[in-house]
C-alpha cells in the first residue's frame, strides 16, 4: 500500500473572481521507503500539496490518504493525533522554540502527546545523537548554526518515530554546504532509518538527492523523473562528463 496517495487533489483559495486554483486534480503516490522531491517554479502549488498531505489544510475537492486512511474522514482531533504520531514536519525556518534547549525542543511533541517526560527525554537524546548533535543538547536555538538548528528540527520530526517525514524547503535558509549536510541527513532518514521523505525544494542540487522528482507547474503534475534504477546510462554519462572537463 502506498504511504501517501492523493486522488484529484484540488485546492482553490478565495471565491468568485478572486479565486486562485493552487492545485488542480493532482494524483500522487509515494511508496514506503521512498525519498521523493517535489519541484516547480514558485507559486506552482508545491507547498500547498505538502500542507494538504500533512493534514495542515483541507482540500477543496479530491482526497488524501495516508496508509490507506482517508484524511477527510477524520475529525480535527483525530487528524491532530495522526499528525503528531505518524508525520514528522521539517520547515524552512526550523520552527524551534527559542527559549527551549535543543533536547527540550525535540522532546516537546512527545510530552504534548502524553509520553512520560523521562521517556521523551531519552528519545530526544537518542535522536540528537543520531543527527550528530549529542554535544549540543543543552544549547538553545540562538546558540546553534542554521544547519545545527535544522538538525534539531529533523531530530524533533523523527522522535515520535513517524513513518513519513514532510520537509518544506528544508535547505532554503542554509548555505550550500549546510544544505548538502541536511540533504545527506534526509538521505540517511530514508536509507538507514527506513522512513519515507516527501520534500519540497526549488534547488536542483538538493532535489538530486531524492529517488524520484515530481514536477509541478500551474498546480498540476507535468512530469516525473526517476533518478535511481533503470538507468545505467547515468554513471556512464558522469564518466563522459568528467572526460570532457
Amino acid at each position: 500500500m502506498a504511504i501517501v496517495e492523493t486522488k484529484e487533489l484540488t485546492k482553490v483559495y478565495g471565491r468568485g473572481d478572486a479565486a486562485v486554483t493552487a492545485l488542480r486534480k493532482v494524483d500522487l503516490r509515494v511508496e514506503p521507503g521512498e525519498f521523493v522531491a517535489v519541484m516547480g517554479p514558485s507559486g506552482c502549488g508545491k507547498s500547498t500539496l505538502l500542507h494538504l498531505v500533512g493534514g495542515l489544510d483541507r482540500p477543496t475537492s479530491g482526497r488524501v490518504a495516508l496508509n490507506g486512511q482517508d484524511l477527510s474522514e477524520l475529525s480535527d482531533d483525530a487528524l491532530t493525533r495522526l499528525r503528531r504520531r505518524e508525520i514528522g514536519f521539517v520547515f524552512q525556518f526550523y520552527n524551534l522554540i527559542p527559549v527551549l534547549k535543543a533536547a527540550e525542543n525535540v522532546a516537546l511533541p512527545l510530552v504534548l502527546d502524553g509520553v512520560s517526560p523521562r521517556k521523551a527525554q531519552s528519545q530526544a537524546q537518542l535522536w540528537l545523537e543520531r543527527v550528530g548533535l549529542s554535544d549540543r543538547t543543552d544549547h538553545r536555538p540562538d546558540e546553534l548554526s542554521g544547519g545545527q538548528q535544522q538538525r534539531v528540527a529533523i531530530a524533533r520530526a523523527l522522535a515520535s518515530e513517524p513513518a513519513l517525514i514532510l520537509a518544506d524547503e528544508p535547505t532554503g535558509n542554509l548555505d550550500s554546504r549546510a544544505g548538502d549536510e541536511i540533504a545527506t541527513l534526509l538521505r540517511r532518514v530514508v536509507d538507514e532509518w527506513k522512513r519515507t521523505v516527501l520534500m519540497v525544494t526549488h534547488d536542483p542540487r538538493i532535489a538530486a538527492y531524492a529517488d524520484r522528482i515530481i514536477f509541478l507547474k500551474d498546480g498540476t503534475v507535468v512530469d516525473e523523473a526517476r533518478l535511481v534504477g533503470g538507468n545505467d546510462g547515468a554513471e556512464k554519462l558522469v564518466r563522459q562528463r568528467m572526460e570532457d572537463l
Partner: peptide
C-alpha cells in the same frame, strides 16, 4: 518541445544524482 525539454531534464537529474552519490 516540452517532451524534448523534459527528457533532457530527467537525464540531467539522473546524472546529478549519480554525481551526488559518488561524492557522498
Amino acid at each position: 518541445p516540452m517532451t524534448v525539454i523534459y527528457a533532457q531534464r530527467a537525464s540531467l537529474y539522473q546524472e546529478l544524482h549519480a554525481v551526488t552519490t559518488q561524492r557522498a
